[in-house]
Design a protein around this nucleic acid. Sequence first.
DNA 1: TCAAACCTTTCACAAACTGTAAGTGTTATA
DNA 2: TATAACACTTACAGTTTGTGAAAGGTTTGA
Lengths: 228, 228
Amino acid sequence: MTKIVVVEDDVFMREEIVAILEKEQYEVSCITDFTYATEDIMKQLPDLVLLDLNLPGVSGFEICKGIRQKSTVPILVLTGRDQLKDELHALNLGADEYLNKPCHKERLLIRITNLLRRSEERKHFIEIQGLRLDIQTYTFYINNTSIILPENQGKIMEQLISHYGEIVTSKMLMETLWGTIDYIDENALQVNMTRLRKTINQLDINYKITTLRGKGYQLELVGEMKND
Amino acid sequence: MTKIVVVEDDVFMREEIVAILEKEQYEVSCITDFTYATEDIMKQLPDLVLLDLNLPGVSGFEICKGIRQKSTVPILVLTGRDQLKDELHALNLGADEYLNKPCHKERLLIRITNLLRRSEERKHFIEIQGLRLDIQTYTFYINNTSIILPENQGKIMEQLISHYGEIVTSKMLMETLWGTIDYIDENALQVNMTRLRKTINQLDINYKITTLRGKGYQLELVGEMKND
DNA sequence: TCAAACCTTTCACAAACTGTAAGTGTTATA
DNA sequence: TATAACACTTACAGTTTGTGAAAGGTTTGA
């Protein structure tokens, strides 16, 4: 069932939206406490987020930005703010649609349908800036190129991308690759790591795999000039 | 350079749009004779189509539909029609965005940017209803599954999809697979065809490969109930 | 300086993809 | 219905690709 998370403070408005969506067989849940809105939304694992901008105490823009940093879930902004600059701002922060209240039921629903259809295509992939990986086939998309990673390299890459920003331990990787940690020669992992690094080097990729001695591995941006 | 085709009959409006787009470094070309609009648009190989709906002699909806049948190029409808039913109709026919005139320059431009970014992701693929094929890696996307086709099966599939609705001859296929038609045993092609058919059968696909004796092969929809 | 941690190359086995060969179906037409 | 052309299928062996083991080299930090 398709799950939509509604972020809207006005009770009347919220209940109307919920009624409309539920009539279309969507599974709907609402955020009513906006203190940890971004986290609460993400926890629900939504297929789509319906977001108001005028919320008490928090900026809807911040929520929008926060969601987009962590996920590619479609965000539909539905708001009373009809200023062009708000629209541009929201769209720049990663919103996929921007509709003004009041909004016809049908107009809202067709946008939702379209966004969901579009995001279906993304279901295959995990993704960070500039990289996309099909975790079924380990087809790896970089700019205008795509290549197929061998299974082991693909699994390592999957871990590195899905834990981007964190450290991935050898233990985690060995469990992912072989389902167990026992009787596995750590060297086998190192060999595959070497192979993956070689693969990455041949591509035009802005990332490298850093070793954190005694801790694990990490995917890191490279070649970014620091501006002071 | 990114190419945008503008379909708009009003001279004043058209020139204003062209000026705005060219200032943003887009390559712009216009359709002014709408008799064979769809064909003329497609010939230009646009990265995006900017479409008006009120055109003399032709229906903008028809053009929209026609483009979408042949391509996944993003279509942005920019029109004076502000009726909800027109908007719904256009979006249902495959339009990606629907904006009302008059429209702020920035609003238009950011939608264009977003559509183009989104369609970048599609550059890898060729696509017909329900099927997508990455022609670099021959990763094949069907509903919620993706698999990797072996090179030969991938090449055959590429031909069948990109010539969907037409007949693909053995000669064409042999040239695609082996670069030449000489000294190639036609049986080799048949073997690969059998293999591809077997692959397709294992998947939940609505298409089958039909043989046209003495002519060639064709991809066809299957299992569609005919309603009289 | 030295040992632990990590990296790299080479090798041989296993799996996947390929065209060849040989035989089996199918279809149009006389 | 007989026949020949066309199409399909299966088995096989050569080639390529991915894999972990082994052995030796390099880096790091106390």
